[in-house]
């Protein structure tokens, strides 16, 4: 069941290539904007790099949250999912995982390339990629709650960001903090383990919360 929904969502995503690419290009454009605004001066960019990459990752994954449930909501498959004997949380977990595969993984793969643009040392790049790898699923899971709550609302896109951004802040702090700690030569594994902890907590609670918000939205 879990596999089924992931395969199905990936298939849907593949059919609409543009969704995957728009999120990725949004990420690239936002990250490249900062040197233009702040100036090409290298060590300024180097100190800013983790924060910029993480904020861009946050915004990029949030952009595509709206589409996580809305297509199924519009053509009614979401109601079928609600009625199906399968546990809704598992379905939501599958959907969040598929959303992560479609938006999170490209960001993780693209981050080192952009890191070079900011002249990050190689081990900082590795830490950045590891932190993003651990952090982006948390973004998709918490984002699933926001997407489920604002299903079918007018102006839902803006509302999701208002609901979900405060909840992203711990991941942002420790994600950017890990890379900064590494660049400052300090141990960064505490940060990564904390993001791992956020990941585990959100894997357990977020699908349940998103499932109950789906039930609320579709009642």
């Amino acid at each position: 069941m879990f596999m089924w929904i992931i395969k199905r969502d990936l298939l849907l995503a593949m059919r609409r290539q543009s969704d995957v690419l728009t999120t990725l290009f949004f990420f690239i454009i936002v990250v490249s904007l900062f040197p233009l605004s702040v100036g090409p001066e290298m060590n300024m960019l180097r100190t800013m790099a983790p924060g910029v990459v993480w904020v861009a990752a946050l915004l990029a994954s949030m952009l595509s949250l709206g589409r996580m449930f809305s297509n199924d909501y519009v053509d009614g498959t979401l109601e079928q999912m609600l009625l199906s004997p399968q546990s809704l949380s598992l379905l939501v977990l599958g959907k969040a995982f598929a959303h992560w595969l479609v938006t999170g993984v490209p960001l993780v793969l693209m981050a080192p390339v952009l890191g070079i643009q900011y002249d990050l040392p190689t081990d900082a790049l590795l830490v950045l990629t590891a932190a993003l790898l651990l952090g982006t699923p948390v973004l998709s899971l918490i984002g699933a709650i926001g997407a489920a709550l604002t299903l079918g609302l007018r102006g839902g896109g803006v509302l999701v960001s208002l609901l979900v951004l405060p909840l992203y802040i711990p991941v942002l702090i420790f994600g950017a903090g890990a890379v900064e700690a590494n660049m400052a030569g300090v141990a960064f594994d505490a940060h990564l383990s904390l993001i791992g902890a956020f990941l585990l907590v959100s894997i357990v609670f977020a699908p349940w919360a998103a499932a109950s918000s789906l039930r609320v939205s579709l009642e």
Partner: peptide, 22 residues
């Protein structure tokens, strides 16, 4: 703003409750 965006009061209450608990 979540409660303001939802017209049906019952759904607004429940959605607000979830975001408040989270």
């Amino acid at each position: 703003s979540l409660q303001a965006a939802i017209d049906d009061p019952r759904r607004a209450d429940k959605a607000g409750a979830i975001i408040a608990l989270v």
